[in-house]
Amino acid sequence: MTTLRPFTCDDLFKFNNVNFDPLTETYGLSFYTQYLARWPEYFQLAESPNGQIMGYIMGKVEGHLDNWHGHVTALTVSPDYRRLGLAALLMHFLEDISEKKRAYFVDLFVRKSNKVAINMYTNLGYIVYRTILEYYSGDQDEDAYDMRKALSRDVNKKSVIPYSQPITMRELRHINRDQ
């Protein structure tokens, strides 16, 4: 049971029950404001009937030509509101918006160790498109999966033919620059 609405600046003051979760990062203000100012419709929030924030999704749309795609930057659900299909709801919302913006696919990065999330994305129709080596820096660097799902505009599903080899961060930057 959810109210879906755009994330607003004021929500930054009250998203703590979600952001205290250890897998949810609290970014600097300029990160949030950048997304809010640039892709406001890609930053959505799920609110419970009592007004609490249940979770939110933050994303963007970018790329040229057939690389024009939606991207999920962050997706998080409060521990109190798990196992209710909320993540799927938020993902569908983002896919929907991307469809409306005529994007070819949606992609996201996820920690290789985050089995729960990978499982969920697979169930939602995402495939592991490629592995990015040492994408997450920290005490111990960790690889990321770049997962993708084609949208209706990509009729031939060209965007989801997976790479056979993992790529490095440098290669990723290179590819992004060319696109």
């Binding site: 607003t8 600046c9 004021d10 930054l12 203000l29 300029s30 404001t33 950048q34 809010l36 100012a37 640039r38 406001p40």
Partner: peptide
Amino acid sequence: LEYIALTYRFYTFSKMEEFMDF
């Protein structure tokens, strides 16, 4: 103030008042 300037640069009228109040 740069946040507000950002809404002009990105042309996001729907967020301007919100950013000013923030």
